[in-house]
Design a protein around this nucleic acid. Structure first.
Lengths: 207, 207, 207, 207
DNA sequence: AATGAATGAGCGTTCATTCAT
DNA sequence: AATGAATGAACGCTCATTCAT
């Protein structure tokens, strides 16, 4: 049997009903992951939480892993949505202000669902990849790469691919760490100092 | 019963024999993690790999989790050892060269056992913390914080705590990503370019 | 988690299927207890004997203990049923004949399933309580207490609670001992002598 | 291998040392049984409690069962000792007072070590037999049988074997129940009432 | 399509017992 | 004789998955 077949939803969400069911199941999985943690999240528990029979669950998702992957994907795209929104607004700004806005947005992205984010990154095997160039950073990277191209004139001469990688990876690491591991860094007055430093890091590097 | 009791080796490694057994078990656990992945690594398999009875395993480690934690600790301290070695040599250097050396060393640290590192970070619940200010970065952070204090005169005025955090987090994210996720970035000629960029990022930020 | 949850059947026997399954499992547990003894009776063996998967067993009973308790309860109620039947008939009789009938019935009650009774009393931890005022005697006690009240006029003046306790405890001990430990006392002609003596013991005490 | 060999102490207690060791182990087993219950009492725990290595334990007792049997035997003989003491004193008394004394003594016997007695009877497989004609009652029975013979003249004509059985079984059941299961029956003023009733039961039966 | 009862491989762990030292 | 490290059979139990209804 095809390994990939075990990791993707079984039906094209062509029908209204299917889509709703998938949504319900992914949502339930996320809730169970948050409430119980990865170890205690089992498919029967998830079917219960979704108010759906275990049989139906397996009609839409071929394995537990597929369910978790769907949660990861959904969470990633929610985070990316936040970023995309800002990038549209920011494209016209000069680097200094653009970077500041993007750093703030990265924080917001991690705040979309920090409880879920923590469970995924800390407890979920293979979902650690979330904050990785293979993970949601891939899309962020593409967006930033395009922005740098656009603003090339303001930058020192550099390998834009590498530069984008460095900006994305370090910003994601720093904002992730602040939101998830050291929330005290983002208390009230601290936010600005933190954002300043990260923005300084990136801006000085680029110019 | 003490929860912590389930996470630490059962016997003090006071005797020659005990220490050897612990070493054998931790080593076997690491090998199984690499060969089989976290999900397929179970205590019976580990005991087999160690050439030891399952009963002996439980005489030294009170749970599977304790075994994995021991592997994590050992791996972390091997990485920290690499860093510490370099830092001693580098303390006397000016920032530019010091940073370059440290970036190179961070790469080396991730190359100590990259297969194990990948399993621990990607598959092992709660070990995601490994590349985190709570994980092995803690020690790296302390070392760097001290270095910055030492070289304060060469730096722009800044909050050294925050600066150390930013240097450590971003350097670890970038070198980790390069070694584990994008090894092509470190092929032959690429290494220097990569090191240059990361060193530039950090150096410009500090000065 | 509720400790009690581990000792009671998991599903209400509301459905036909469930009730059948529970019956099959309790029956199998009793058979295994008799054939193998308590120590060798384990859940996998019981599931085998029941012709049911171990998973199904745990769908209906949350633990081995719960299974054994169910056997005990069923056995107790079978014994009590025997007693209750006789008591209804005997209520109208004067003490002498009533006591004789009850002693005979107590013997019958112990003969309902003496092999199981022996295992439960001799080998099963905490089931020793079976022949105890806390165990099935409780119901017998209630029945007898009511009978004594009814027949108060024929008795010497006495504390009926205490008297009922003494009648029940001693009759149960004597009939249990005879059936389970000294069956030769109940061979053919011996039965009558034995019943006579026990009836004499109780009757003289009461009048 | 001889099954019986697994149930008796390995060495004739010919040497001072051996006897002391056996004593220490039996004592430790009793303490562990009381403190932890039968299920949680394991041989390593017992060796610990005895301050002796597990190897030494197995030098003196061939199995866990042997250890528990030794505890049972010791406990039984302590209870019998109490009875024997009284019987000597009571042999000369007329039935009424003798029975009263013996009932009181039976209570005392159950109070020798009620915690241990409870664990043995309620939790220990096969030790439930303690309060049985095969258990410590056997010796009590012999003593009483002899007493009845001695006092035959005062009794109604009866089968002394059967009578002794009935006296012993019912007295043991009643006193056991009172001490172990319903201690409130023996609170202060209640003791006398209880003793009176049991003595009445037996005396009326015999005369 | 939907249900949920049933399955059973497989896991973590315990503990009576052995045996090299 | 004494030690205690080592053994491994065996057990209770979970949970992803299937399939008859």
């Amino acid at each position: 049997m095809d390994k990939k077949a075990l990791l993707t939803p079984r039906k094209t969400a062509s029908q209204q009903r299917s889509r709703a069911m998938i949504e319900v199941l992914v949502e339930a999985t996320a809730r169970v992951l948050i409430k119980e943690g990865f170890d205690r999240a089992n498919t029967n528990r998830i079917a219960d939480e979704a108010g759906v029979s275990i049989g139906s669950l397996y009609q839409y998702f071929p394995s537990k892993e597929a369910l978790v992957i769907a949660v990861i994907e959904r969470h990633k795209s929610e985070m990316v949505d936040v970023l995309r929104g800002t990038l549209a607004k920011v494209a016209a700004l000069p680097i200094d202000s653009a970077v500041r806005e993007l750093v703030k947005t990265m924080i917001d992205a991690h705040r979309v669902n920090p409880d879920l984010h923590r469970v995924l990154v800390e407890e979920t095997p293979r979902a650690g990849r979330i904050g990785t160039i293979d993970g949601f950073d891939r899309e962020f990277y593409t967006l930033i790469r395009a922005y740098l191209e656009l603003r090339k004139a303001e930058l020192r001469p550099m390998d834009l691919d590498l530069a984008a990688y460095i900006c994305v990876s370090s910003t994601e690491a720093l904002t992730h760490g602040a939101v998830i591991d050291s929330p005290e860094r983002l208390n009230d007055g601290n936010v600005q100092a933190f954002v300043n430093e990260v923005a300084t890091l990136i801006t000085r590097y680029l110019k």
